[in-house]
Design a protein around this nucleic acid. Structure first.
Length: 276
DNA sequence: TAACAGGAAGTAC
DNA sequence: GTACTTCCTGTT
């Protein structure tokens, strides 16, 4: 067990922020969330009324995987402090979403997940992805005996009949084709990690893939490549920009980290009803 | 009640 | 501009 004192970190906020689909509240343990990523199963315990967070793993695993995954080396206080205090909407959004971080998720999983996310809702996306993992992914057993399923690799997603079990709808053919192209070596995702590539090049490369348009490309860049200046424009964000910003969001004001600002807005737009 | 419309982190054509 | 899978929500 690794215990850390963390500012601006709230696993509940992260789990509910819509950027990831495989972080869930533990079915019985209080204040505990389960994470499956990078081949591992992790339990995260958020100690109430404190900055203490417990990670159920070794020091080595924490340093090698989770520190990076949760973007713990970034200073979210910096981003928050740079929010325009005149912007009442954004100030509220950031206050309501304090604790969110932009995870560094695996590229392949992010690609597949956000293709599934198009014209879809979060509860359905999560269900589809879980079925996909159970039917196509590799089963593993954690130290405490918990069975968990890894996100399927490209070679596990070639059979359209298996994909249909996950009820991906018309998106199944996008996933099947993508898996096929990756296995055949026609799409090489690893090149996208090259730091010399411009964001524009990466976006165009992604948009060349069947089933990926502008919005999904930007999600992949933000969540799978940690390009935090990417700005996915979805229905929620469009509505907010129309209703709160007279149709124009001041992206230049947040140049370099507008993707993080976007996540606070998205989260707030999606949740503010239930939070009053 | 059960049926039905509307909508969902959009994209291909 | 329209069709698209399936599910969930709200309305009648």
């Amino acid at each position: 067990m690794v215990t850390k004192i963390l500012d601006h970190f709230d696993i509940r906020q992260i789990a509910n922020s819509g950027q990831c689909f495989r972080i869930n509240k533990h079915s019985s343990k209080q204040n505990t969330y389960t994470v499956i990523a990078y081949g591992k199963y992790l339990e995260v315990i958020q100690v109430p009324e404190s900055k203490e967070v417990k990670f159920n793993c070794t020091d080595k695993e924490f340093e090698e995987i989770w520190k990076k995954y949760f973007d713990l080396e970034a200073n979210y206080g910096y981003y928050i402090d740079h929010v325009d205090t005149e912007d009442k909407f954004l100030t509220s959004a950031v206050a309501a979403g304090d604790g969110i971080r932009i995870l560094r998720q695996e590229l392949w999983e992010t690609m597949v997940s956000f293709i599934i996310s198009q014209n879809n809702n979060i509860s359905r996306i999560k269900k589809s992805i879980e079925v996909l993992c159970e039917f196509c992914g590799k089963g593993q057993k954690a130290g405490d005996g918990t069975i968990y399923y890894l996100f399927p690799q490209a070679e596990d997603l070639l059979d359209i009949k298996l994909l249909q079990i996950a009820k991906l709808g018309y998106r199944d053919k996008y996933i099947q084709k993508l898996a096929e192209n990756v296995v055949a070596g026609e799409i090489n995702m690893e090149i996208l990690n090259n730091p010399l590539l411009t964001d524009e090049y990466i976006e165009n490369y992604l948009k060349g893939i069947y089933g990926i348009g502008t919005k999904v490309a930007n999600c992949i860049m933000l969540f799978g490549l940690h390009k935090i200046n990417s700005f996915p424009m979805d229905t929620w964000i469009k509505k907010i920009i129309r209703d709160e910003y007279n149709g124009v969001f001041p992206v230049d004001q947040y140049n370099g980290f507008v993707g993080i600002i976007q996540q606070y807005i998205f989260n707030y737009a999606m949740h503010r009803k239930e939070e009053g």
